[in-house]
């Protein structure tokens, strides 16, 4: 066989192998990318779930606090506290007690109420 023919016999198809390698790498990258994205979605989902749980807990604590505020704002509670003499600076109301009957529940001192003045207190609660 001539030298030239021997040189070109059994030659390696580099271009073909290169194309196969590139295609294979692409498939691997895509596959890995898919796995990474799926994992990332799962992790994000776990974080979302955690944040949602915290939000629910915060809302519950908020509602519990509001219920507590409603309780201490209630007419019955304020009336009980007044009759126990627990309003501290509100001696004013003690002097104005008319034989155990008091119409106005609370007048905080330092708000401009004149001695002997009775003022109505209105509880306001903005809608949540």
């Amino acid at each position: 066989m001539s030298a030239n023919r021997r040189r070109h016999a059994n030659s390696v198809p580099v271009a073909k192998f290169f194309a196969i390698a590139v295609a294979g790498s692409l498939v691997c990258v895509l596959g890995l990318g898919y796995v990474w994205c799926t994992n990332d979605m799962n992790t994000t989902g776990v974080k979302i779930k955690k944040v949602e749980k915290e939000l629910v807990q915060l809302r519950q604590r908020n509602e519990a606090a509001l219920a507590g505020i409603d309780s201490v704002n209630s007419t019955a509670y304020l009336n009980r506290q007044f009759h126990r003499g627990l309003f501290g600076k509100l001696e004013l109301l003690e002097r104005l007690k008319i034989a155990g009957r008091v119409s106005v529940v609370a007048v905080p001192s330092g708000t401009g109420a004149m001695p002997g003045e009775l003022r109505r207190v209105v509880n306001e609660r903005k809608p949540q």
Binding site: Q60, E63, A67, N73, T75, N123, E124, R125
Partner: peptide, 14 residues
Amino acid sequence: IFDRTGQVLASNQP
């Protein structure tokens, strides 16, 4: 449930 002045008469305790 509120009274006419806005005082809460019935609320929810979580």
